[in-house]
Design a protein around this nucleic acid. Structure first.
Lengths: 344, 344
DNA sequence: GAATCACTCCAAAGCGCTTTGAATAGTGAA
DNA sequence: TTCACTATTCAAAGCGCTTTGGAGTGATTC
């Protein structure tokens, strides 16, 4: 059942039927009623492909994911982000188009998708420090929004981010306030922009307390349970081991906790542990995992916010590019305590 | 730059340009060369919306996810499945359309999406026992493929599944072979079809060994680390605790392991633990998590397979509906050992 | 009674591509 | 020279919707 057929059955023109269904004012209410009833009865559903061509919009937001990323721990955060964004898309009549591409095709995929009109906007996730995708998209003249930021880029673009630097300053500062001075830092891969900023936050806090950073206490790598365990274990084996750890995610925190308890140390007493918590649905701090002291910022909520910002941008293209910076919230849990042997 | 403009610059008709670009034989090779070169030079990219309308295909596969599911642990498996399916879509020129809907809108969403032509096929994930989605989709006359099966449905439909019953028979049988007779079973939610089948496999193995199943040793619930921990801990507190556990996923297995070690018991010696392993990228058994004895079947590979089967079905609609049943592979790790105090 | 206006409705022109059915030119056979 | 055929190319008709620019009513105004 298409528009033409429906309009024939109603002895009306397609124009009128279309307008009746789309709520245009120039149609008699009695007619509109007849039309909507007939549409419901015959189960009429406007063909999406025709609609997209006619309106020039695809009502779809694109997310591009290179193969290799599908392996990373980004995955776990990714799923929550997607869920949040998807909710908002849905509420606004949008779909999400996921495109998985080979790594070497990533750039050309952005180009192809931006130019062939299959999406109305794009979300860029997990930017690296000087992310080439941003300039590339900016040149392509399609609405896009970056979840995170790319430090060394000075063209304007829309982004939404959490204040990573400040978050790690707070977290590290909290441990310093408890008397800790040897604090192991287990970070994500530092080619990622967020990891760069978190590192900066860690360093800022040390500097403010007059503590000299020590390379042996700083690890950077993929944020897996395994890496958390291995790096923490190595630090604990040092002659002068750390009395506390800060880490970039709940996932390595689980590994760190395992390393701590394997050595017979008590979490929050012998050793403290604080982390950045993305508030991931099935690794909810204090629920699925034990309660860690953390700075928390929901990545799912971020997904919602990003989606909304992008949709706003699509609806008002001459609107200036928006930015949004969230502050993460400190939650003190049972995983941190005063540094043993120090008066606080 | 659209087809019309490009054809004008080439002083050719749109017909010829279109054919040249799409590899039709009735165009002179010299002309084709001119056309492809011009297309590259002017950066011509066929408009996807127009193409979809003209061809009657959207080159897109739909996945529908109700809000509530985005909370579940399904998420973690989901991300890997999506990654696998996405790879195959990409290789075949398809996109993936994810639609997040409110739970009460799930059915109508399937209907809307199937009927408005926005996708060429649908994947149904995580079927429950008498899943209403299947009959619903079958009536809608759109290619779809179920990852998993729904037990009580007798209309024909295409599916791909792992042999869950056999997998748990093997796993439980392995423990029985090691002399265990009190085996705790920590399963997923039993409204899910896969959980139902796994339960059956567990029961089959007990029956084959003449062991009477005991309700106190059987748990069913969402497969979180937390639930794994709590249920295992409760069973270990029984007067006559189990000497081994079987569980439906690596995630609860982590919780079970935590419960075991918290009681000072040694995994693989005092207590055995075996699990079904979906081979999830960032919880890879033996890599990210310790090596568990497991039956393994990659959910990512399943994603690939499902995608391929669905695409085959789309390309050959009169093709009979395919089924594929995979057997999971037993991997013996360090988490299982002979039952203490039993001669084997 | 003519002019104006609001209210409804419609014909037709896109949107940018594919595909059908012909037309044209060139070639070898008869 | 003519005919049948092949190789190329094109005009035009969709695909199913939206939207522009009227057109046809009565009702209202002067």
């Amino acid at each position: 059942m298409n528009l033409k057929e429906l309009s024939e059955r109603l002895a009306l023109s397609p124009t009128t039927v279309s307008r009746a269904l789309n709520g245009y004012p120039e149609v008699n209410e009695a007619t509109r009623l007849r039309v909507t009833e007939a549409a419901a009865r015959y189960n009429y559903r406007p063909n999406a492909r025709a609609l997209h061509l006619a309106t020039g919009r695809s009502m779809s937001i694109g997310h591009i994911i290179p193969f290799s990323r599908t392996n990373e721990m980004v995955n776990i955060v990714f799923a929550d982000f997607i869920a949040g964004a998807g909710e908002v898309y849905s509420l606004n009549g949008y779909n999400m188009t996921l495109t998985v591409v080979r790594d070497e095709d990533e750039m050309s995929a952005y180009r192809r998708i931006a130019e062939n009109g299959s999406v109305d906007g794009l979300i860029v996730q997990s930017p690296v420090c000087d992310d080439p995708r941003i300039a590339h998209l900016a040149a392509l003249d399609i609405p896009f929004l970056v979840h995170g930021r790319a430090s060394d880029i000075n063209i304007p673009y829309a982004w939404m981010d959490v204040n990573n630097t400040q978050a790690l300053e707070v977290l590290t500062g909290h441990l310093i306030g408890l008397g800790h001075r040897r604090i192991g830092f287990i970070n994500g891969q530092e080619r990622m922009d967020f990891a760069q900023r978190r590192r900066q936050g860690y360093l800022n806090a040390l500097k403010a307390a007059g503590i000299t950073p020590e390379p042996a206490l700083m690890y950077s790598g993929e944020m897996s349970e395994q890496n958390g365990h291995a790096s923490a274990d190595a630090m604990l084996a040092l002659d002068d081991p750390p009395t506390a750890f800060v880490t970039s995610s709940v996932v390595p925190a689980l590994g760190i906790r395992r390393a701590i308890s394997a050595r017979g140390l008590r979490l929050g007493q012998d050793i403290s542990l604080a982390c950045f918590d993305d508030d991931i649905s099935y690794l909810r701090n204090g629920d699925v995992v034990p309660e860690f002291t953390a700075v928390r910022s929901s990545v799912r909520a971020a997904g919602r916010r990003c989606a909304q910002m992008l949709i706003d941008q699509i609806n008002a293209p001459d609107h200036r590019l928006e930015h949004d910076l969230w502050e993460a919230e400190l939650i003190t849990g049972q995983s941190t305590g005063p540094c043993p042997g120090v008066q606080t």
